Amino acid sequence: MGQDTQGTERTATRTMQDGRRRTGRPSNESDDLSRLFDVLAHPHRRAAFAVLRNGGWLSLDALARAVLARRDVTAAGDDRPPLATVRLQLHHTHLPKLDAAGVITYDAEDRRAVCTVENDTFGRLLDDVAFEEA
C-alpha cells in the first residue's frame, strides 16, 4: 500500500495478469466488505440483523427484547444492559446504521424495522461471525 501524490489516501498496488503492476484505490468490492465489517462490528447490530433476517416487520420493543435475549445467551455474568437502554441504543444508533447500510429498513416514526438486504454476502458473513462467537 502506498499514498497518493497528495499523501491523503491509501492506495493499493496490484499485479495484473500480464505481470504489470497497477496502483489505484481499493475496489468497490473491498469498500463493500469494509462497510459490512463496520456494520457488524457491534453485537447489538449483529443480533438485530439476525433477528430481522428471520421474519417480517418487527416493532422496536419486540426487537429490543429479542436482541437482549440473544445477547444474554452469549454474555457472561449479569452485566447485561436493561431493556430501556437497548431500545434507546437500537433506535438512535444501531438501527439507523443498519438502515444506512441498506440491509434493513427502519421506520423511526412507527418504530418498526424489517430486513431488506438482497445480497447474501452479508448474511453469510453474519453466520461466520456467529459461528466464531459460539
Rank of each mutant, 00 (worst) to 15 (best):
Q17F: 06
T8Y: 02
G102A: 11
F131E: 08
R80N: 12
V39T: 14
R80F: 02
A100E: 13
P96M: 07
V73L: 10
A48P: 01
F37N: 04
V73H: 06
R20K: 14
R87G: 03
T121V: 11
A66T: 10
H91Q: 14
V129G: 03
S34E: 12
E118S: 14
R46P: 08
Q17H: 06
D38A: 15
Q6I: 13
T74Y: 01
D38Y: 12
S59F: 05
F49M: 10
A108V: 10
E133Y: 07
T116K: 00
G2A: 10
R10A: 13
G102I: 12
D61A: 13
F49L: 15
A12Q: 09
S59H: 04
L126I: 09
V86P: 00
A108Q: 13
D79V: 11
S59A: 14
T23R: 13
D4H: 03
R35A: 15
A134P: 11
L60C: 08
L58E: 13
D78Y: 05
V67C: 05
G2K: 08
Q6W: 11
L68S: 09
D78G: 15
D79N: 12
A130P: 00
A108W: 01
H94F: 04
Q6P: 01
T93E: 04
V117I: 05
V114K: 12
P81C: 03
A12W: 07
L95F: 15
E109Y: 02
V103K: 01
D38S: 14
G56R: 12
D128W: 07
M16D: 10
N54T: 15
L83H: 14
L83C: 08
R87C: 03
E132P: 00
R22T: 09
R53F: 09
L58H: 07
T23H: 02
A108D: 15
T121D: 08
A12N: 02
F37S: 06
S30Q: 12
L68T: 08
E9D: 07
R22V: 14
A41V: 01
G102S: 08
G56L: 06
T8H: 05
G102D: 09
V51N: 01
L36F: 10
E133D: 11
L68K: 04
H42E: 13
H92R: 14
R35E: 12
A69K: 06
T121I: 10
W57E: 14
D107W: 07
E132Q: 10
H94N: 02
R53D: 05
R45E: 06
R124L: 10
T85N: 02
V39K: 00
D128A: 15
F49G: 02
L126N: 06
G55A: 13
A134T: 14
V73T: 14
Q17Y: 02
S30W: 00
D110P: 00
L63F: 03
T105R: 09
D4Q: 04
A47W: 07
T11Q: 15
